[in-house]
Amino acid sequence: MSAITSEHDLFGTLDAADFAFTRRAWVDAAPARVYDLVSDVSAIGRWSPNATDVTFDQGAGPRAGAWFGGLNRKDGREWTTRSQIVRADPGDTFTFVVGGIEDGIVRWSWTLRSRGRGTVVEQSWQLLRLDPVLGTTRGDLDALRDYMANSVETTLLSLARWIAEE
């Protein structure tokens, strides 16, 4: 298959599992502190270049099953998302699915591991199902994955810097 053909693969032949990544960074804080920061979804705008105005639903908080909404920006466009927490283990893992557990399209996960006096923070992104809103060709989805990987790297660096300066 040529590079030109692969750029124009039919949407139906793509596999969502091909679109995932994990990035890591060490931060100078204990896992419990990092968990408190990343599970406070309203704080993500401090570090993320894309997500702003993120808030838990009324009465919700960082626990499995809870919902939150947010405003996202990319390339001059804005859109809102609804996400549901699927795992909330203080000091260890915080995972949510954009679109909710039943019909989600992307899983985001933060995993925390103690290392020295700080924490190795892993942020993972996994496309769960194909949706035309995210792109319709392999090229579209590769570009989205690469864009999100760069965004995560920026987020992790910003988080580490924020913690160091706090």
Rank of each mutant, 00 (worst) to 15 (best):
F11I: 04
A143N: 14
A160H: 14
S114R: 13
I163T: 08
L127P: 05
V98R: 00
R33E: 07
R129N: 13
L134S: 10
E122K: 08
I105F: 01
R117S: 14
V121I: 11
T13P: 02
A29F: 07
D40Q: 06
Q126K: 14
Q84N: 00
T93H: 02
G59F: 06
F56T: 03
T137K: 15
E153M: 14
D89L: 02
F96Q: 00
A43V: 13
N50G: 13
L10Y: 12
G135A: 14
F19R: 05
W26L: 04
P90M: 06
D18W: 02
S83N: 01
Y147A: 14
T81G: 00
D140L: 11
I105A: 01
R23Q: 05
G100M: 07
S48T: 10
W79I: 00
G99F: 04
E102M: 15
D36K: 07
A66Y: 02
R46G: 11
E122S: 09
W26C: 04
I105E: 01
L10M: 12
D18H: 04
E165K: 14
D18M: 03
E102G: 09
A20V: 08
A25W: 09
F56R: 03
G104W: 02
A64W: 03
A51S: 09
L71R: 11
I101P: 06
V34C: 07
L112C: 05
V152C: 13
L130M: 14
T154I: 15
N72G: 01
A25S: 09
R138T: 10
G61I: 04
D75G: 07
A3S: 15
I163D: 07
I163H: 10
F21K: 01
G69I: 00
E7H: 14
S109H: 04
W162P: 11
Q126H: 12
G116R: 07
V120E: 03
D57K: 10
P31T: 02
D18I: 02
T55N: 09
I85S: 03
L37K: 08
F21G: 01
G65C: 08
I101L: 07
R161N: 14
V38H: 07
I163W: 10
D140I: 11
R138I: 10
R33A: 08
G65S: 06
T154P: 13
L144S: 11
E165W: 12
L159V: 13
T93A: 02
I105D: 02
T95N: 01
A66N: 04
D142K: 13
T80D: 01
Q58T: 15
T154Y: 15
V38D: 08
A88P: 06
R23H: 03
L112Y: 05
I101W: 05
S2F: 12
G70L: 08
W79L: 00
A66E: 03
A143P: 14
A164K: 13
A29W: 06
A143F: 11
A29S: 06
T111Q: 08
T93G: 02
I101G: 04
